[in-house]
Each structure stands twice: as structure tokens, then as C-alpha cells.
Amino acid sequence: MKEKNDYKQAKRYGMVIDLDKCTGCGACMVGCYSENNVPFKADETNKLDSINWIRIFKITNDKPYPETETCYIPMPCMQCDGVGKHGHPPCVSVCPAVATDYDYDTGIISQIYTRCFGCRYCMAACPYHARKFNWWDPVWPADMEKYLNPKVSPRMRGVVEKCSFCFHRYQQARDKAYLEKREELAENEYQTACAEACPTGAITFGDLNNKNHAVYKLKNSPKAFRLLERLNTNPKVYYLTSKKWVRRAGDNYLTHEEPGKIKNNMKEHH
């Protein structure tokens, strides 16, 4: 694994998704598919071997009408900081060939498609099912290949892929800033495709370490929580909800436990 860089202020790019605003329309998924050349099957009935970098879960409160409530949870890769919050996400240390790595400059977890040999250990390690395997050769309908994004390499059969927080957009923004002799990127210079596609503005993206970015304030909201926080994966994707049952569904609790009142049980270690 790479050495930590000694940058004074490393970035920690993250996302805050307001579940009260999400309508489950799927625009984020469509945006992601076209931005990242995500392949799809002729028949997408079986979701367990579909590839998607962000997908929407639908949950309900299991109550009969008229108390029935529904919530949609868009789930990209959580870009976990991992146990100890210093670059040990569940998937990175298990990869036998260093095909996935934690970038200390941005907090983004990379996936090197030409290095991955498809052992799928990272998929077994990820509790969010954010990682997808290319069970088939990617095939696009006739002429659609002309519309592929030239900035993103398509993946081959037999490797794992996942959301990269549109890392190519970060690289482009960095290149532009470099040419303009700037060190810092403005908040709107680097945005993910899903955040841009969301019609209700439910997805906010930015640097969680930067006090001037919207995500910084949003993540500290009392409505904020993260999925499966108790596993100590330390995700960089936060969710906002005003509903108690949604908050409770976001993690596992023993009957007597209350969300938000649990201390982390694990020691911080390497």
C-alpha cells in the first residue's frame, strides 16, 4: 500500500444523501451508467448479477395502510475510511494483488481493472455489496459504443468494478487547476455524475474536511447517519433522514438499543 503523503490538508471527498428528498426516480443511476460506461445486460431481471455503481434500495416501515411509509436509499460505494479511520477499508487490505487502493490525497478507493484478476475477495469483504463482478463481456447495443465516455475505460470480463466517485472528473479538474496555477479546487469544479443528475438535489458532494463545502455542515446535522456504522467501516457517504424507522433500518440494533446512543465497540487498530 502507498505511503501517506504529508499534505497539510488532505481531502476527504464524501457525499451526503438526503433521504427525505429522494424520490427513487433513478436519475442518479442513469447518470452513472452513461458517465462511467457501466455495462448492462439485455435482460436485467436478475439484479444479483447486474452491474451498477449506484443503486437504489427501497425499504418500507412494514406497517399496513394508511401508516405505510417508503424510503429510497441510493447506495454508491461508501468509500470507507475503515477501522482506525486511516485507510484500512474492508476491501483494500484483503485484495491479494493490490488491485484496489486507498488514496490518501482524496480518501477515494481505486479499482485497477487491469490488475484485478477476479478473485472476488473484496466483494466478500464489502458489507454494502458495492462491488460488482463482470460475469459477462461488456456488450453495448449497436451504435451505442459511439456514445461511450472516452474518459473512462470500459472493463473486461472477469474483473470487479465499483463506484469511483467519478475520479476521472477529479483528475480533469486537477489538470485544469494546475494549468491555471491553482492549488485548490472549487466545490463545484468536481462533482459526481449522480449528484448532478439528481432532480431533487438530494445528493450533495464535496470535501468532508473543508468547512466551506456544503457536505461539511450537512454531515454534522442531527439528522445525519451512516449505513452499518457499527461495523466500524467509517463510510464517507452520509444520509439524512427525519424518520426514526429509517435511521433504525440503516444499521443493526438489539431490541433494547436506540440508534444514535451506541458507542463503538471496537478498538481502533491497524
Binding site: C95, C116, F117, G158
Partner: peptide, 15 residues
């Protein structure tokens, strides 16, 4: 493994 021809990566690029 999904890419058997790359199986040697586990040795060469060992994590």
C-alpha cells in the same frame, strides 16, 4: 478466478 491468465499477479504484485 475471473482472469486466470493474470493469476500470477497474486505472486508478482503481492499484497
Amino acid at each position: 478466478v475471473g482472469q486466470p491468465l493474470r493469476a500470477w499477479f497474486i505472486f508478482w504484485h503481492a499484497n
